[in-house]
């Protein structure tokens, strides 16, 4: 099974719609609650990142035989230093984003915590692709 989502980069109030929809899909399919929760949190953090850092993009969410694989792609500024971005507390988010409760430098570390596997491909000036998977 496969779902595709466009991620709007301009309207922060609807950020999370894709994660919300996919969580509903997983629950309807009878996926165990703990797996649903791990997917929802990791996907939501990645979706927020796509909105606030990537300026929007797209998401593919696939349910495979033994895992769930979610890919976020954006054509934003890219990540200059991935090891720095992975550090808890490091963030390049602006004050407006921080006022909304994000930009605390927890996004990527949280994704890594909840996903069983995560990979990042990024190029400065070109964009970023984050792939996360959760085992079933």
């Amino acid at each position: 099974m496969h779902k595709y989502y466009k991620i709007d980069g301009k309207d922060f109030s609807i950020a999370g719609e894709a994660s919300s929809d996919f969580k509903t899909v997983l629950k309807k399919l009878g996926t165990p609650a703990e797996i649903v929760r791990k997917v929802a949190i990791a996907m939501y953090e990645a979706e927020i990142n796509t909105v606030i850092h990537g300026g929007g993009g797209e998401c593919d969410a696939a349910i495979e035989k033994d895992k769930i694989v979610i890919t976020f792609r954006d054509q934003g500024p890219g990540i200059a230093d991935i090891s720095l971005a992975m550090q808890e507390g490091y963030s390049t988010a602006n004050d407006k984003i921080r006022e909304l409760g994000f930009g605390a430098g927890m996004g990527l570390p949280n994704i890594q915590k909840y996903a069983d596997d995560m990979s990042i491909e990024t190029e400065v000036g070109k964009g970023t692709t984050v792939v996360l998977s959760i085992n079933l």
Binding site: F12, S13, I14, A15, G16, S19, S20, K23, R37, A40, I41, Y44, I48, L100, G101, F102
Partner: peptide, 11 residues
Amino acid sequence: NSQVIRTAEMM
């Protein structure tokens, strides 16, 4: 803001 509700939903 609405992201508080979204966060609650995810958790």
